[in-house]
Design a protein around this nucleic acid. Structure first.
Length: 136
DNA sequence: GCCAACGTTGGC
DNA sequence: GCCAACGTTGGC
């Protein structure tokens, strides 16, 4: 099983909306590297849900329910989406500052490539963030 | 609202 | 195929 971090701007698509929807397709990815990451996702993979811009914190955990398929919002066949559903809201949100401040997370893709919207995490990084969220 | 970082585009 | 120009993103 792989681990990911997916970013969304809260005013565009927030965790609250995600919980209301129960499930959504993750669209709007228009970056090749992020697209490749989407294609690497498999059902059962876990994703951290990160609010960029406003909040700048990890707010919840999502699970991939359907592997990448053609983005229904465009005719351009090069873009894909995945289906994800919320697993749970974190007991404690983990802010960008906290992650930056932890030396164990110095290799975090989020910190190295802040503009990438779909980022691969190692299991270790994933677990560290869960720990910071009071989930372990 | 500004600015730095980075990806993409297009001219050569 | 290189590189300058431009647009977008996201942290501050």
């Amino acid at each position: 099983m792989k681990h990911w971090l997916i970013k969304s701007e809260p005013f565009k698509y927030s965790w609250e909306q995600f919980e209301k929807d129960k499930q959504t397709f993750w669209d709007g990815v228009r970056n090749y590297q992020a697209r490749n990451n989407l294609r690497d996702m498999s059902p059962g993979d876990w994703c951290l849900f990160y609010h960029s811009n406003e909040g700048k914190e990890v707010v919840g955990i999502a699970e991939v329910v359907k592997a990448a398929y053609q983005d229904p919002t465009t005719d351009n066949t090069q873009w894909v989406v995945v289906d994800v559903k919320p697993i749970k809201k974190l007991r404690k949100k983990v802010s960008l500052a906290e992650m930056k401040g932890d030396p164990r997370l110095s290799d975090l893709g989020l910190l190295k490539q802040p503009r990438l919207s779909v980022i691969a995490l190692t299991e270790t990084q994933f677990n560290i963030i869960l720990e910071m969220a009071d989930e372990q």
